[in-house]
Amino acid sequence: MSENAEPLIQVRNLSKHYGEAAVLENISFNIESGDLVSIIGPSGCGKSTLLRCLNCLEILDEGEICINGTLISSQLALVDDAMFCRRAHQLRQSIGMVFQSFNLFPHKTLLENIMLAPMVVRKQSRELSRRQGMELLDKVGLANFYKRHPWSISGGQKQRVAIARALAMNPVLMLYDEPTSALDPEMVEEVLQVMRNLDRDGMTQVIVSHEMKFARDASDYIIYVEGGKIVEISDEDEIFISPKDERTKRFLKRYM
């Protein structure tokens, strides 16, 4: 993937407003294929919104996003809404997303949770989806649980299934919206381990997190967001050892 000259994600002058209030202002950054990037910042700084803009769960108000060659821009939304929706739909199919509250489908078993999207969206056969689903459950260490329903497993297990479910669509990019915030401390590690494994396999991952230790240990680099703006983008060690910006310094002091 690294031979691809273009960065996997290019964000240019992204802005997002809720009514009058600006949530994101003029955000620009690139992420290369295979990177593991952490987005950190205080609560309400807009980091989750930024993540949700990347797979069009939120519609950007200004700027453009280009992911894996698919271009989404505020201009396009104005000119050709149908085209915009089509591209957003296409984009979401190649991006996996993991939520803080898991959002597993409670009326389906774990295996069915994973099989659903490939069968519905890709019209993949039940047999193939099933085989693939079992492989993925095995990958996150839950193969024996395939018949269970989401209500009968722990939070950490749910999040691992959620990751497996996202992987079933063969995404080129994984987004995590505070994946460990709702978990008991002893379950955090099992989820982070899955993400580490994915990083080793070369998956591009963007994580909004409060796990500073993980961000520091595993990330290729860190984006620090505050007040809807990118304050600092830097190599992980650099930001933790010698943050350039005063605001970053203050934030990290509270967390570390």
């Binding site: 797979n55 769960l57 739909h89 979401r92 199919q93 190649s94 991006i95 996996g96 997303m97 939520f99 509250s101 959002n103 597993l104 489908f105 409670p106 009326h107 659903l116 999207a117 519905v120 969206v121 959620a162 479910r165 996202a166 669509m169």
Partner: peptide
């Protein structure tokens, strides 16, 4: 609402999300 979001994030259309995820629940 997270159910609809999760379904959309998996690449399902709005109708597919309703049909397979939201309406059964």
């Amino acid at each position: 609402s997270g159910q609809m979001e999760a379904a959309r994030a998996l690449g399902m259309s709005q109708w597919q999300s309703l049909r397979y995820v939201v309406i059964p629940q």
